[in-house]
Design a protein around this nucleic acid. Structure first.
Lengths: 221, 221
DNA sequence: TGCGTTTTGTTCTCACGTTCACAAACTCCT
DNA sequence: AGGAGTTTGTGAACGTGAGAACAAAACGCA
């Protein structure tokens, strides 16, 4: 991931910072909703649940958008972060696998409000086709290629059972999708250049269980 | 309870390792299902999607459960990891907020099979009470304290809208819950000693969007 | 038994991430 | 205008994590 144009100084933002930018974005939106127009790094850090030094360092990777002695303009900073993340326009998204979880995802209002637009719901089960979920008609999985082509879809969401996930991922990649959010509890293998992020409920619970066990077993509070 | 015996030298396992142990556990289960009884660190690392040096280092924090020149006994290692995580018995879990996502969580079979048992579904909306979801009757949120007490619940799942999440968390903590898995898109503040992990769909998508934008903008593949 | 092969467990080094601490830069007040 | 008070942006120190590399330990075979 090197070799850029000389003019485009491509600050490469650390991955840990990238993962926090959406949190800052949401915190800024919350502040704006409260009518707050200016905030200090301390205020924003509190709202985002991080420490203020980290926040300032994170923001410094984007540029110098604050004013010393004053703080940050909420709307301006919000726009700058949104631009950096790339959510100033909507990204088209397809969801494959309309089971319980797929239903929930399709109905999730946060997509629309945060820069994403569900352009299609796909499922291999013919019993679901023509049904409406969240106001969108479920279509056959085989329509994937066409939908990706017509809507220029780059991001796919997988909410199928584990055994089917790799096949779906392969088809997505072949169709031109290059970012995948995977809810299936399995390791996906994809070619280089394709990003996969996974969300795994039982892993999160197991991590909690580990710490819980330690609490119970270790010192008595 | 008791302090640890001097021999039990309280290995504190790095957080990064803890987060991977469940992945290894699942990979081992997959291998066992294929009838494989022994595997090398290379095999397991491939199945888990990590590099073998990292895997061996992770396992070394637990103890020395492999055999040089041979590899790991799948069942034995699986048991050791399960024991370390604390999922050799079931953890009782309550889910609060039975909307679309709560439905999906209640029906998620991975809970049961990975060391967790949903003991109650709670919702503040009376319209849902007495309804069955995934074979469990939805009960009023006010039953929380009683349920936690009677079932010795330590882990709670929050799948309510963002505006209600902090209240639910406060009530959970007051009831004695000390680990929370939060699906609401908001920062929870909890007293020290309480663990919170969050799962946030739009944040994951925004991280993908950031990288996607870079791909499109940077080199032409 | 002893040698060669395999594979683990661990050490060492480097990269990444977090936090501290402070100079620079801005506002406000006299 | 100048000094006091704020708050940002960043350099430097520290801690954690990742990967390469290798010694130690097991096995198999002559």
């Amino acid at each position: 991931m090197t070799a850029r144009t000389p003019t485009d100084a491509v600050r490469d933002i650390p991955e840990a910072t990238v993962a926090r930018l959406p949190v800052y974005l949401r915190a800024l939106t919350a502040l704006a909703d409260q009518g707050i127009t200016t905030c200090s790094s301390e205020d924003l850090a509190t709202a985002a649940g991080v420490n203020s030094a980290k926040l300032r360092k994170d923001l410094s990777y984007l540029g110098s958008y604050g004013t010393r002695g004053v703080g940050y303009d909420v709307d301006y900073l919000r726009y700058q972060i949104a631009r950096e993340i790339g959510v100033t326009q909507d990204w088209p998204v397809v969801i494959v696998g309309i089971g319980n979880l797929g239903h929930a995802l399709a109905n999730f209002s946060g997509f629309r409000s945060r820069g994403f637009r569900v352009v299609a719901l796909l499922d291999a089960d013919p019993a679901l086709h023509e049904q409406q979920v969240a106001g969108i008609v479920v279509r056959p999985f085989d329509d994937l290629e066409q939908i990706v082509r017509e809507n220029d879809v780059a991001i796919g969401v997988i909410s199928v059972p584990a055994f089917a996930a790799q096949d779906v991922a392969d088809r997505m990649v072949a169709a031109g999708i290059s970012s995948i959010l995977n809810f299936a509890p399995t390791v996906l293998s994809v070619p280089p250049g394709v990003d996969v992020r996974k969300v795994d409920l039982s892993i999160e619970l197991q991590i909690l269980a580990y710490h819980e066990q330690r609490k119970a077993h270790g010192e008595p509070v």
